[in-house]
Amino acid sequence: MPSETPQAEVGPTGCPHRSGPHSAKGSLEKGSPEDKEAKEPLWIRPDAPSRCTWQLGRPASESPHHHTAPAKSPKILPDILKKIGDTPMVRINKIGKKFGLKCELLAKCEFFNAGGSVKDRISLRMIEDAERDGTLKPGDTIIEPTSGNTGIGLALAAAVRGYRCIIVMPEKMSSEKVDVLRALGAEIVRTPTNARFDSPESHVGVAWRLKNEIPNSHILDQYRNASNPLAHYDTTADEILQQCDGKLDMLVASVGTGGTITGIARKLKEKCPGCRIIGVDPEGSILAEPEELNQTEQTTYEVEGIGYDFIPTVLDRTVVDKWFKSNDEEAFTFARMLIAQEGLLCGGSAGSTVAVAVKAAQELQEGQRCVVILPDSVRNYMTKFLSDRWMLQKGFLKEEDLTEKKPWWWHLRVQELGLSAPLTVLPTITCGHTIEILREKGFDQAPVVDEAGVILGMVTLGNMLSSLLAGKVQPSDQVGKVIYKQFKQIRLTDTLGRLSHILEMDHFALVV
């Protein structure tokens, strides 16, 4: 994948999101292997301009796509893939009243899908469409860049269908997702969380590099694949309309690839034109409109599966009536509230959605109805927002919020430890010299600072030695090549209790 991002070429006709291997024109390309080798690009942008032909009021008969309808489940399912879809609609009884809503608040519980998330729908649909058009064949390999849930859905379907599955996901995604993927037989590649989507090191860039190296491999490409919004247009939206008897006044959905909100909203605009569509985008993402909503100094966020630093091709923002931004604290607070007060075992993005819903639905009156999409299960986040310690460490809970008995030293300040200034190293000294210094002084790690004293990161003896043994660096290389740029900081005025929580999850903390 090139470091400079080429513009994806656009073909003359058809839909841009065809499933299957992508040609340089962004659509299915038939021909000899030699032709494909000559024409197939190194990668295709996940934010390529959409060429979708959908228009409100256009006859369904003019759609270029294969459409399906929700099917009634048999008493005995032939395999677990038949437990994807037909998820329950559940009334939220307490939270709406707590925040003064007059309307009825309903939750579409997508964590009841077989793999635990709304992404099971698009995973199965992308595979079925690729099999139907002859792209996927027995023994082929599926590769997908994902925040985890699409990966789980694909790995689940691949396990049943017999495909090899490789999932490329950023490091910030939970260990629970990784464990589930491994249990399903998927191979996992992790990428830096802070890598831009168009960087060769991003999950998108690495996935395309693997595709170019592995024979008979395919990126189904949830960011561009029409099967993504079509899955929701054909099934999720129809289920909502049936469950609500066609009567709903507002739908609120958090947005990642945009397939969920695009597919549902398009069908609702056709069948229930008075329904307002509300999009939820986390602070630090750029999906919301108008652009002024996205202006923030924050560039990272903890909530998973929603928000991006690019506009995915499948996201149709014209069908969203209003956007709201959400933050991590309210997302996790509301997710825990949904679990504790409503018994809905949902993930953090569901918290984002409901946090926005109780604001947006203030305009609705008694007798009206708001539906929220709860995308995934708490299963993926047992060591994250479900953990009091994690919430404390991230600053989303305060010590006084917890009532468990603490040891005698818990409320003492870090400054009472009488710490001395640490050994520091410059980023320009060599790895070999740094190892000598650390061994001589008896230290395992040291902060790396520039000549102005600005902290650049941390270097550890173990990481340097393993990097040297693996051949990633040489003793003569500058130590700046092996620094940890993500590390926890703590102030002298913070409590030892807070430091204790940090050290339970990290090997060190830097006192500043």
Rank of each mutant, 00 (worst) to 15 (best):
C165P: 02
Y223L: 04
P145L: 02
A71I: 13
P192F: 02
N93H: 07
H22P: 02
R132G: 05
P46W: 02
A48T: 14
P46R: 04
I92S: 09
A265G: 09
G263W: 02
S199G: 02
H22D: 02
D86V: 12
S19K: 15
L156H: 08
R164A: 08
W208R: 08
K102A: 11
G263F: 02
G274L: 08
A253N: 11
R132T: 14
G258N: 07
I240G: 02
E213W: 04
K30F: 02
L77G: 07
D140Y: 07
V10G: 10
I142Q: 04
L154P: 05
M173L: 15
S32N: 02
G20M: 15
N149L: 06
L136D: 02
T135S: 02
Y163T: 02
S117G: 08
V180M: 09
C275R: 02
G96Y: 07
K82S: 07
N228D: 04
I261C: 09
P273A: 05
P59S: 12
P2C: 15
K75F: 06
K211I: 09
P74M: 14
K25P: 10
I143Y: 07
E62V: 07
E62K: 14
I219N: 10
S199I: 07
V255K: 02
P33L: 08
D129N: 15
K25Y: 02
F99I: 12
G162C: 02
K30D: 14
P170V: 02
E62S: 14
I167D: 02
I219V: 08
L230G: 05
A207R: 02
I127G: 02
K102V: 07
A155G: 08
S123W: 09
S227T: 12
H232L: 02
I214R: 05
L77A: 04
P6N: 09
K75Y: 07
K36I: 15
V204K: 11
L251V: 12
P74R: 15
G139M: 05
A24G: 15
M250P: 02
Y223S: 04
A69L: 05
E62W: 05
R209C: 08
G139R: 11
A107Y: 04
S227N: 12
G100I: 02
T262F: 04
R91V: 04
H17P: 08
I76P: 10
F197M: 08
P229I: 11
I80G: 08
T236A: 04
I219G: 02
V180L: 08
V180N: 02
R161G: 10
C109R: 02
A8Y: 09
L230P: 02
T257G: 02
A38Q: 04
G148M: 14
P46G: 02
A69V: 15
L77I: 04
N93F: 02
E131Y: 10
R45D: 04
S227V: 06
I122A: 05
P46S: 09
G11M: 02
R45G: 10
C244D: 02
Q7F: 15
G246I: 14
H203L: 05
S23E: 15
H218G: 02
S254M: 05
G139N: 07
A265C: 05
K247W: 09
K267I: 10
I214G: 05
D120R: 04
G151Q: 02
M89N: 06
P273S: 10
A183R: 02
S199L: 07
S27M: 13
Q7L: 06
N113E: 02
K39M: 14
G20Y: 02
K211D: 05
S19E: 02
E37A: 07
P59T: 15
L156G: 06
L77E: 06
T135N: 11
S63D: 12
E4T: 05
A130K: 02
S254R: 02
T257E: 04
P2K: 07
A130V: 08
D129S: 10
S217I: 02
L124S: 11
V255S: 04
L241R: 02
E40L: 12
P2Q: 11
S32I: 08
A183H: 10
H65T: 07
V160G: 13
H203A: 09
N194F: 13
L136W: 08
K83F: 09
H203M: 08
E176V: 02
T236W: 02
S73F: 12
P12D: 02
K247G: 09
K98W: 10
K39S: 04
I76Y: 08
I76F: 06
R182G: 11
G134R: 13
D140C: 06
R196P: 10
R58A: 15
A183E: 02
I214L: 07
V10T: 09
L101W: 02
P78T: 12
T87F: 02
G162L: 05
P21G: 02
G151S: 07
A186K: 02
A157G: 11
N225Q: 10
C275S: 14
E110P: 08
L42I: 13
K82N: 13
A107S: 07
G139V: 05
E239G: 14
G148Y: 07
K177P: 02
N149E: 05
G256T: 02
P229H: 02
T13N: 10
P74N: 02
P16M: 09
Y233D: 07
T150M: 02
I44G: 02
I264A: 02
G96L: 02
L154I: 04
L251C: 07
S174G: 04
V252A: 11
S61L: 09
R266Y: 07
P78S: 12
I122F: 02
P170D: 07
R51S: 12
G258A: 02
E187F: 06
K137H: 09
T262A: 12
A8P: 02
G258E: 06
C165S: 06
H66A: 06
G263T: 08
L136K: 04
G274A: 15
S123G: 05
K108I: 02
G258R: 02
K269G: 08
G148I: 02
N225I: 02
P6V: 04
E104M: 02
T150V: 05
A155D: 02
N225D: 02
S174I: 02
P2F: 14
K25C: 13
C244A: 02
R196D: 02
K119F: 06
I80V: 12
E201G: 13
G246D: 13
D140F: 09
N149M: 06
M173P: 02
S27W: 12
D245T: 02
G148T: 04
G274W: 11
K39N: 12
V10D: 04
V160W: 02
E144L: 05
D221I: 02
F112V: 04
E187V: 07
R190E: 02
S147F: 04
P46Y: 02
K82R: 09
W43P: 09
N212Y: 02
H22C: 12
A195G: 02
S174W: 05
E128R: 02
Q243D: 14
A130R: 08
P88G: 06
K211G: 02
D47G: 08
H65K: 07
A69S: 02
P33C: 07
A130M: 02
M126F: 07
G11K: 08
I142A: 05
V160R: 13
T262D: 02
R58E: 15
M169V: 07
R266I: 10
A237N: 06
P78I: 05
S73N: 14
G162V: 02
A265Y: 02
C244W: 04
L230H: 13
A195C: 14
A69C: 11
L268T: 13
P88L: 05
G20T: 09
V90F: 02
P41S: 10
A231R: 07
V206S: 08
E40F: 12
L42H: 08
E176C: 02
V180G: 02
H22L: 09
I95V: 11
P6S: 15
P200T: 08
R209V: 09
G205V: 07
D221V: 02
C275A: 15
S3G: 12
P138T: 12
F111V: 02
T262Y: 02
I76A: 08
A195P: 07
R266E: 02
H65C: 02
H203V: 02
V10E: 09
C52V: 04
S174L: 05
K98G: 12
Q242R: 10
S175Y: 11
V118R: 02
E104N: 09
S175F: 08
P12G: 07
S63G: 02
V90C: 15
T5G: 08
F99A: 14
A60T: 10
R91F: 09
H17A: 05
G115S: 08
T260S: 10
I152G: 04
E128C: 02
I122P: 02
